[in-house]
Simulated scan of single mutants.
Amino acid sequence: MRRREVPPMPPLEATELRNYTVRRRERTVAVTALAVASALVVLMALGFWAFFVHALSDPVGPGLVGMRIDGDAVTVKVGQCPQDRVRRVEVWDGDAERLVWRGDQPLTEEGRGGLLPLWDGEAYRASSPAGQPSELPKALDVTIDHGPEYGASEVFDIAEVRGAALPPGSYWTRDGVRTAGQLDGIPDCGRSVSP
C-alpha cells in the first residue's frame, strides 16, 4: 500500500490562520469593551437619576419671605428650619437694581431665626447705610443669606404691602397673608444645616 502524500501547507494558510486568530481576539476585546462601556453608562444613568430625584425631593431651603410695614418700620420674616440661622439680609431697589441697605449677623435670636427689622442698625453686628430712605422704592428686592447652603429672596411691591390688611404677627407674601408660624411651618426641612 502506497502512502499518500499530503502536499505541504502553503505559507498563506498559516498567515490566514494567524489573521483569523487576531481578528477573533480583536472581536472578543471589542465585545468585552462594549459590554463594560454599556454597564458603565447604565450605572452612570442610574446615579444621575438618583442624584436628581434626591436633589428635587430634598429641598435645601424654604424660600418663602413675608413683609409687613407699620408706619416707618419695615419688617421681614423668612421661613426657615429651626436649626438655620440668618447671616445677612440685603435690600435692593427692585427697579434700579441698586443696594439700598444691608444688615450682617443679626444680634437677637429672633433675628437669627428669620424675623428681620430692616434699617435697624442696632439689631445687627454691622449695617449700611445707617438710615432708612425718606421714601421707599416702589419695589424692594429682599435677599436673606443663610450661609453657603441656601438663601431666600423675594421682590415686594411696596404699595401692595402697605395696602394689605395685616393682622398682628402676619406678613404679606407672594402666596397671600401668612403668620410667622405658617412661614416656619415647613413639613420637611431637608438637609439644611446650621452654620
Rank of each mutant, 00 (worst) to 15 (best):
V65Y: 02
A35C: 08
D95R: 10
D58E: 04
V42Q: 05
K77A: 07
D93A: 05
G94S: 08
W49I: 01
V60L: 12
I69M: 13
A50D: 02
P62I: 00
R98N: 06
D70M: 07
D93Q: 05
A45K: 03
I69S: 05
T75K: 14
G79V: 03
V42R: 09
D72K: 03
I69L: 12
F52V: 05
A96D: 14
F48L: 12
D95I: 03
L64I: 14
G61K: 13
S57D: 04
A35Q: 02
F52Q: 07
G63D: 10
G63I: 06
A37I: 06
G47D: 08
A39H: 04
V36Y: 06
G66P: 03
L56I: 00
G71E: 12
R87K: 09
G47M: 11
M67Y: 08
V89S: 02
G79E: 13
W49E: 04
H54C: 00
A50H: 06
V78T: 11
V41T: 14
G94A: 09
K77G: 00
A35F: 01
A45C: 14
L46C: 11
A39N: 07
G79S: 08
D84C: 02
L46W: 10
V78C: 04
A50W: 13
V42W: 11
F51T: 08
V78M: 06
V36G: 13
I69R: 09
S57F: 01
L99M: 14
L64G: 01
E97S: 10
L99W: 12
D95M: 08
T75P: 00
P82H: 06
E90L: 13
H54N: 09
Q83R: 08
E97I: 01
V41K: 03
R98Y: 04
V86K: 09
